[in-house]
Design a protein around this nucleic acid. Sequence first.
DNA 1: CGTCAGATCGGTATCGATCTGACGGTGCAATACT
Length: 480
Amino acid sequence: MELEQTLAKYFGYATFRPGQKEVIEAILSGKDVIALLPTGMGKSLCYQLPAYLLQKPVLIVSPLLSLMQDQVEQLKRFGEKRVVALNSFLTVEEKRYALHFLEQYRFIFTSPEMLLQQQVQEKLANMTLSLIVVDEAHCISQWGFDFRPDYLRIGDWFSQGNRPPVLALSATATEKVVKDIHATLSLHAPFEFMYNVDRPNIHLGRVLFEDRGDKAKWIVEHVKKTAGPGILYLSSRKRAEQYCELFMQAGLRAAAYHAGYSAEDRQFIQQQFIDGELDWIVATNAFGMGINKGDIRQVIHETMPANVANYMQEIGRAGRDGKPALAILLYSDGDEELAKFVVTGDLPSSSHVDRYQELALQRIAPSQMLKNGELSETAFRVLDYWLHQEPEERVKARLHHFALEKYQAVDEMLKIIKTKDCLREQLVGYFGQKLQKKPENCCENCGIHYDEINTVRMKEEKKVEMMAWESRLKQLLISD
DNA sequence: CGTCAGATCGGTATCGATCTGACGGTGCAATACT
């Protein structure tokens, strides 16, 4: 049967979207694949269709619990019952049940941490999978080395024994990120599909400030005269809350979002934003992954992101509906210092390495350091991981190298911010691609007619408002 | 490394200058508490 027929039979589509067919064909022929497809371009179909053809369970490694839940719900709505999210939401009994019948499921979603648990490993060793999917695979590079080391450990698991083909999926990945994915997962001559990273409908603005303090005034004035929905990114939780306060005082429907809130609160805020009940999310970089909202019109960065990959990921949340959207990056001299501190501040130091070894020699559990509050939980886990991988001196060198790499990544972002050339060309070039064509309102350096964009938006907004008003009247009339 | 809020200081007003210390992102799983 032709793939198109299978597509029609199971999903009801007549044709594939760009990249899907190539990726699926490579998987079916047993190849590893790295596929970079923009969100909303049918990434999940790339593993869902093979799951129906290959008749063995597909394992999907996912970075966030909320992401797993969304995908499970989506599949269930679609009528698929043989789907499970193996994670800490399950009770002990539910987990035991799920593990016992694991081979019965068609789709198994799980986290790297859960995947590496002994009971899960033992179960998987005794069953055959048709495909392993690493969703949001850039997390390997972004988080594996100094935040969630289990993202590196899944690589060890991949390299032992027979395994099915691996599909690594992501929306955007720089050349370095692709290299990290390839190496960490020990992929064998993977088929690489890279969709064009340029998003021509996103206008790339950049505003320079002499004085950092002028940003708040500028942002509030800007958002008052332009339309949302939008995301304002900040580099600390506290600032996110302060700006949210400013937005609300200005009469905007806004909410703050960062990792300090409970999962329930975050879920609630996210849902309100998706449903159009909020115009602005004022957030740290905790916000965004897995957000499926087509009509985000603006993404503003109050301070620079720590690297180009993050920037691309964050602005990429705007304008998924293809209509014009605006990304504005604010910069004042010295902003890079905070960015550099934040991304390296939590790395373990050489003295932490020494202390760890000293405790180990005295046969004291090194976790004592944690109890004494000598370092953070994250830093301890990272330290513990690397000291089990390689000798002390190598670990020290590596930690030093991480910091240098992170500084360098900030400087690369800074270079793009400060360029006098086309921002779009620079960005796309950073991803190893060449810009095909410059769109209208390309970027700050090519020229953006802010007024034109804003006027169009204000008109659109008025129209929407009127419709809302009319429909509300209608509702009132009907209910009376 | 830089910012910012609150404390302290100076010299004797009712506040401005200076000092000090706290703070600064991302998530999983599982446990110990209310």
